[in-house]
Simulated scan of single mutants.
Amino acid sequence: MSDRNRVRWVWAGPAAFAWFFGWVLGLAALRPEYHHATKAISELGAVGAPYMLAMNAFGFVGTGVCLALFAVGYRARMGERAVGYKSIMLTALLFMMTAVPMEMGADGDPDMGSKLTRLHLVFVMLAPIPWLWALIGIARRYVDGTPRALALASAAAFLGVVGVTIFLMADRTFQAPGLVQRASFVLFLGWFAAAPYLMRNQIESRSELEKHRG
């Protein structure tokens, strides 16, 4: 497949955002007892949960596939300026691995004694790290303009939400952990949704340069 065809895959970034939250909202709507404010997204795919296979196969793995396609399209479209595309691909693979289902305890909280739960949480924590590394590279490569601004804002906001989440989770009386977790997912997948649009100027500039060379 030529680069001309692969460049279209960059639009898998916005698709990943819509696809993931479509599954989260859709499957949650089928469970009247499930509340977004108090429940983690991973609980939709927990062992024994209704529609467990759908959430893990389509919600997590499907979204990871979209992120991988974005990485391929990003590389094809930006060429040598596709900073961090290998890190983005690694993030996509790690996101797929979050399909490992966690197990819930009798108290309704994740069973931390379960190997599946610990493995799931490891992948959840690892998945954003290569992405953050890619954002650092993008911010260094594009010293001005929207790609740098988007990278810095996304990284700062994501780390801020993660910090708030850790702080609030230490308070067992906090009533809305699910909302804070969803904010981190919105910021994470939001970058993939916005990147093709906000990098358009750089993409168009590269296309014009290639035309002149041709």
Results as ranks from 00 to 15, higher is better:
L121E: 04
L135V: 07
S154C: 06
A149R: 15
L119T: 12
S114N: 02
T173C: 03
I138T: 12
F185M: 08
V143S: 14
W131M: 11
G163P: 13
M112E: 05
A155Q: 01
F192L: 14
W133R: 09
V164G: 04
R200L: 03
D171K: 12
F192C: 04
L126I: 10
F188I: 02
A183G: 14
G178I: 10
A157P: 06
F167N: 10
P147G: 10
F158E: 03
L159C: 15
T173S: 15
D171E: 14
E204I: 03
M169R: 10
R148A: 04
L168Y: 06
V124I: 11
R140F: 01
L179R: 04
A139D: 02
S184Q: 07
A157T: 11
F158R: 02
L132F: 12
L132A: 06
V186P: 03
T165E: 15
R141H: 15
L132P: 03
F188R: 05
R172Y: 10
L179F: 13
R148T: 13
Q175R: 14
A176T: 11
S205H: 13
G137K: 13
S154L: 01
V161Y: 12
V161G: 07
V186S: 05
Q175S: 15
V143I: 10
V143L: 09
A134Q: 02
D111L: 08
S114E: 02
